[in-house]
Amino acid sequence: MSEARREALLWVAQRASAAVLAVCVAVHLATMIYAVQGGLSAAEILGRTRGSVGWLAFYALFVVAAAVHAPLGLRAVLAEWFGWRGRACDAALAAFATIVAAAGLRAVVAVFV
């Protein structure tokens, strides 16, 4: 893949994941604020998330979007502030993305099962 195409597609990925995150963060915050209004306990929250395919899908999407978005932002910071770019940098960021996705999805599964 040409450098131009790769950079353009990464840019699309960052913008698309940002659009997903904008919705997810809003829903997440609104739900949290709503859920704790009446002094909801952790057990009660787990009671609502366990077995809920809807919440599983929502938070899985949230985690994937964050795992795509954050490393791409870091990539720009590393290139501009520290001059680190290229294959090694991209490999490190892919590893970071994998860790974010794995840790996030683990948490999503933990409140589902």
């Binding site: 040409s2 450098e3 131009a4 950079e7 353009a8 770019r85």
Partner: peptide, 13 residues
């Protein structure tokens, strides 16, 4: 031209 302006040193920066 689009190839020339794309990329890390182009419009995406």
């Amino acid at each position: 031209r689009l190839r020339a302006v794309a990329g890390a040193a182009g419009c995406h920066a």
